[in-house]
């Protein structure tokens, strides 16, 4: 617990100093939303059906950007080796990085989400809070698998490109479940939402456990 909070605190101090991670995620997320507005401007479809998809495309791609930044920071000056020297288990290290990645993604999303509401002419009501809760779960899913995949891709020459190649196929269940759950909240027809929340929770539990166990293979020489 102590080591996790140390990692989170350290990442926050670095982020406050260089502001690289959150700014890039934020900018990218907003740009995706704007591009989708142009892309679908002329077609006459119900916004409530389309909007959840655009939101999650923005979230998941912004998350990849954030993960790349977060890892670049640890690779610079071989800091990851310094972390591996510390008397904490590889699993704890993994959980610490998941937590800090999750926090940064949530901060960026907390700014993208109101913009999403404004762009799509939605209301700031209880539904908005429900979407935020779903975003929490979906983002945790993305962070749990993204953290280990980014350490894998860091070993290749083209790490920035490799991460989405590895990550997007594996996060298909998260994207489907988050989009569907968001859609059900926005359209008000929430009959199937519990099964989506189960899928998200299951994904998070399975991947947090599996990655916790095999993280040492991903970081050690």
């Amino acid at each position: 617990m102590k080591s996790m909070s140390a990692i989170i605190f350290k990442d926050i101090v670095i982020e406050m100093r260089n502001k690289e991670s959150i700014t890039s995620m934020l900018m990218f997320g907003v740009l995706v939303l704007v591009v989708f507005q142009f892309a679908f401007e002329t077609i006459n479809v119900e916004r409530g059906l389309l909007a959840p998809g655009t939101l999650w495309v923005a979230f998941s791609f912004a998350a990849i950007l954030g993960l790349n930044r977060s890892l670049a920071m640890e690779i610079d000056n071989d800091c990851l080796q310094g972390l591996l020297l510390a008397p904490i288990s590889r699993g704890e290290l993994y959980l610490g990085k998941v937590a800090s990645n999750f926090i940064f993604m949530m901060i960026a999303e907390a700014i993208v989400l109101p913009l999403f509401v404004v762009f799509n002419n939605l209301d700031f009501n209880l539904k908005f809070l429900e979407v935020a809760a779903i975003a929490c779960l979906g983002t945790l899913g993305i962070a749990s698998i993204g953290t280990i995949l980014s350490t894998i891709s860091a070993n290749t020459r083209i790490k920035e490109v490799m991460l989405p190649v590895l990550q997007i196929p594996l996060t298909v269940p998260v994207i489907i479940a988050s989009v569907e759950a968001t859609r059900e909240v926005l359209t008000g027809d929430t009959r199937g939402i519990s099964s989506w929340l189960y899928v998200l929770a299951g994904f998070i539990i399975v991947y947090l456990t599996a990655s916790y166990l095999v993280f040492e293979f991903a970081v050690e020489e």
Binding site: I152, P169, L170, P173, V199, V214, F217, A218
Partner: peptide, 27 residues
């Protein structure tokens, strides 16, 4: 290194299959 890292990815990828099936089936 290739063996180790691709084994990690292979494991993560293969445990994705049932979850994927569930979510796609639900859609």
């Amino acid at each position: 290194k290739r063996a180790k890292l691709s084994a990690v990815f292979g494991l993560l990828g293969m445990i994705d299959v049932p979850i994927n099936y569930l979510s796609i089936y639900l859609v």
